[in-house]
Design a protein around this nucleic acid. Structure first.
Lengths: 195, 195, 195, 195
DNA sequence: GATGAATGAGTATTCATTCAT
DNA sequence: GATGAATGAATACTCATTCAT
């Protein structure tokens, strides 16, 4: 349970920023627009954030933190490795399908060119990455997965695959159901394409 | 055969931009910096490109066009579907491993937030996408791949997987060999992780 | 006897301002910094002063008032005009030498560009000016000074001379004794440079 | 002869700044106002000056340079020391009386609180200072001045005196003739006030 | 075609001042 | 009286784009 020590306005600004960034992208978003969206004065933003970029960074950390939390709550140790992997994919797809602003944030804004930012994101995602790797290792131990694959590489391939599916769905205009792709996706991860 | 109708300066500017964008990112790159790098006057750029953004777009089109060309040249109809898929992965990894500026461009800059840009990129990549899909369909027909997977979905999963491997390699500081990952990657695509 | 009708906080703020202004100059001094220095809340300052500029004005008036008071107390009617003039110079130099913040205030901050402010300062200094003029006139009457100089002009020349000596001493980094200059200064005022 | 290497716009901006600074003071002068006064675009200013403050600095240097030049041209070695001193005072008073904007600049703006700036001004004035000291020393050698005064101190007293006379004249609203004060001023410097 | 000096629109950030508590 | 969180006006500076030469 995360006790929210931060004042309401902090979150109001983040929510405003989430909307404005999703609509215009970081660079085309004006601070004053975020302030208006959050219902505060321009200057108030600077009581909570040092620079415009800090809003983006904090937004990532808060939102990715929440997301990672959901993965950790949704996936239990009692599940079979395969079931756990499916759960991960379900949560990944459904959370983003149900929160289009968050989807924009993660699939589009997250890919900023700033190397520093990328590395911060990496940290925020670390727990998610570890969760997937743990499942893979557990599957190997339990014998439900092949014993001979490189966990780190496969983790990248699985994460990258899901990520691309979400991005494609987003860019295409969300014309189809993302959660409907969970089954076939897991099927591919498990069996590959070899007959 | 690409008959280069464009004057030398056009390409000089693109090469300058490739370097400058890779070093600073699109938004932090000044047009005058690109001009200096290309050895032309600031104003000259506007004889070849309408806006700063057009440089980026043209750069994508030229560079992705060359890349796609390499895929098409490297992958023959005579190859088995499996061999073709491996060839695709080989080219994908080796071309980016051998051209770090291009890698930055595709893995980092390509992910700018502009939706329009993303769609243009989609078009530039279309032939690559089709190439992969053709291989998948050929494999199905030939019986070397399973007959029951969704080609479009699997294409996303394969492309996304490779893409993530490249990005991870790039962000980590290119500490290991990217081409060494071709074998295990294709192995995963073929067999999945099921024992 | 100055009955201090003003509450302690009024003076606390002025002392804080004296320090902050001396360190940063008026324009680069933040009100909140003065508040912190004075140990009060930002808003409290506005219970005692209408605007930031008023702090400066009040500071001048208080400090110059004290200074003028010292001149009036130090210089008696019983003294010879020459002795009185020397006393003025002694007090002028020693008071500023012994209070470096006050020296910064009078020699640097006092010279702000605001015409209104300059005129207020003129008023605050009026009693000092009159004191000097009185001495000059008394000297003329007593016959200890020449009868044929313009009192107002000479007062400017004397005041300006002392002022420049102080400023020079301050800017040079207070490397030498200011009070040691009293003798030669008065000597020049009395005899000029003619042999 | 100073060959003006700088382009016209450089001087146009300085003249605009001289006017605007004199009217409003440095801190209350907007860059865009200076640009308008100079007949150039806002951005053009930054082709010639790095920061707003640089305009002020350059202005000082140019204007004080011109002024010092006039002193050096007006005062010859053939003059008696006394005549030379009178010439200095004449030029000092008449140049400022005839150029009210310059008077504001030197008497008001020059007294900014920035220590760095003050020291730059000191350098720009150095040649003037040396000129006065040379006259004083020549007078001592020639026997037309007393042999026993401190040149540096007397230079401060003379410069400070003249300076105060100018400032007083300026603040009072230029109600009287400044040049009419030359005679009595020199008289005081020569003879002091002793009978 | 080529130049690069000139343009001027656009915006993050600061900080004096207010006012609900 | 005292507080300090909130306000929002104000502006130096950048840089993509233009256009006279």
């Amino acid at each position: 349970m995360t006790s929210s020590k931060k004042p309401d306005k902090y979150y109001a600004i983040l929510e405003g920023a989430l909307k404005v960034f999703a609509e215009n992208g970081f660079h085309k978003s004006q601070v004053s627009r975020i302030a208006k969206e959050a219902g505060v004065a321009d200057g108030t933003i600077y009581l909570y954030f040092k620079k415009k970029e800090d809003i983006l960074t904090s937004l990532f950390q808060e939102k990715l933190g929440e997301l990672v939390e959901k993965f950790n709550q949704g996936v239990g140790e009692h599940m079979s490795a395969r079931a756990a992997l499916m759960k991960v994919c379900e949560i990944h797809f459904s959370e983003l399908e149900n929160n289009i602003h968050l989807a924009y944030l993660t699939q589009i804004e997250l890919r900023q060119s700033d190397m520093l930012l990328r590395q911060e994101i990496g940290l925020a995602l670390k727990r998610y990455i570890i969760l997937i790797e743990n499942i893979l290792e557990r599957g190997k131990r339990e014998g439900s997965f092949r014993p001979d694959f490189d966990v780190k590489l496969v983790r990248l391939l699985i994460f990258g695959g899901m990520d691309e599916v979400v991005t494609s769905w987003l860019i295409s205009g969300q014309k189809y159901s993302l959660t409907a792709q969970v089954g076939p996706t897991i099927d591919f991860f498990m069996k590959g394409i070899e007959p």
